[in-house]
């Protein structure tokens, strides 16, 4: 069963993938964008949404999240389909030359061409070293629904914005919230940290969650403050917000030519070693490659326009200038 049929699929919803979605729209292609993260913006959203970026053409300074918002709205005039929070896990070429891409949740997508804008790979939550076997049985890496924690004693691990935000969000719902952080200093926004410290949450710093205890699901955790004996803390839920790890992951098995086991080799048209599969942005490699957002924007324009010719050999490679006429929204089936 095919869940989605498009002309062009972008694998990766970072800045380069989003700009590619815009360009695919300009070319009149039915477009989809797939990403492992829940939000568009890739590395920029996951790692530096609040960081000013100074080297995007035309913007003396732009915050990461503003850049992403701008890219999303630029692409939105062509209504690309987004599949977020669901990594692409396999890619294969069908007999008719079209590509079949499957996501982790089992969604299948048939597409004429694929542009891999996967940056540094798939982001996955950094696992909690102690007690990973409790994942789904009281241990979670995200809080998708606050109400799931109603009346529970919750232990949150981490020192970043997610850990602090979830602490504050769960306080009114949970019976108790304890925040455990390995350091004394928090990485979250100063205002958020202050709010946490002023709240009813118990904050334990310089401490490690050394074990998760329980027969079937979580009953308690063992918390070890530096230089002190471990102590046991009864709880029914643990949220580990330890950030993300990025890895090329399943893409390594797609048969693409890799360089240094982490970059995709492309030619001047941004073609990878597989027919119909292009790449752009931080993930590509060639002699003289410079890994910057601005370079990725150029690469994805090259990739999408070349893919457009692949899909319609009668089409011209050059898309025309966007100033030639006001772009008209193209309906997406």
């Amino acid at each position: 069963m095919t869940d989605l049929d498009v002309d062009l699929l972008l694998v990766g919803a970072g800045p380069v993938g989003l700009y590619g979605a815009y360009y695919a729209g300009v070319r009149g292609l039915r477009t989809a964008v797939v990403d492992s993260l829940q939000e568009p913006g890739g590395q920029v959203t996951a790692m530096y949404p609040e960081k000013p970026i100074f080297d995007v053409a035309g913007f003396p300074s732009v915050l990461g999240r503003e850049l992403v918002a701008g890219l999303v709205s630029q692409a939105a005039q062509y209504s690309p389909r987004y599949l977020l929070g669901d990594p692409a896990v396999s890619l294969s070429r069908q007999d008719d030359g079209r590509q079949l891409v499957r996501t982790a949740s089992g969604t299948t997508m048939r597409c004429g061409a694929v542009v891999i804008t996967g940056g540094i790979g798939t982001f996955t939550p950094r696992p909690l070293p102690a007690g990973e076997e409790f994942l789904g049985r009281g241990l979670a890496y995200f809080v998708p629904r606050l109400t799931d924690y109603a009346g529970l004693d919750v232990v949150i691990v981490g020192g970043g914005d997610s850990a602090c935000d979830w602490t504050l969000a769960l306080l009114p719902i949970a019976r108790s919230v304890t925040l455990v952080h390995r350091r004394t200093a928090f990485r979250a926004h100063a205002a958020t940290v202050a709010a946490v410290q002023a709240s009813d949450a118990t904050v334990v710093t310089d401490a490690e969650l050394s074990a998760v205890l329980g027969a079937g699901s979580v009953d308690a955790v063992e918390v070890t403050v530096k230089g002190e004996p471990p102590r046991t803390l009864p709880c029914q839920a643990v949220v580990a917000a330890l950030g993300f790890l990025a890895d090329l992951g399943p893409m390594r098995e797609w048969g693409l030519e890799l360089h240094d086991n982490r970059h995709l080799v492309v030619d001047t048209r941004m073609r990878t070693s597989l027919p119909g599969v292009y790449a752009a942005g931080d993930i590509t490699d060639y002699d003289g490659k410079v890994r910057l957002i601005s370079v990725g924007f150029g690469e994805v324009a090259t990739a999408v326009n070349n893919a457009a010719v692949d899909l319609d050999p009668g089409a011209q490679l050059f898309p025309g200038h966007s100033t030639d006429s006001t772009p008209a929204p193209v309906p997406v089936a």
Partner: peptide, 22 residues
């Protein structure tokens, strides 16, 4: 985020091939 820091005995080391300069 790319797990490119490796632990020696007296110090740790960043793998220049794996560092993404973040």
């Amino acid at each position: 985020p790319v797990d490119c820091i490796y632990e020696g005995e007296r110090k740790s080391y960043i793998n220049p091939k794996e560092c993404i300069d973040c």
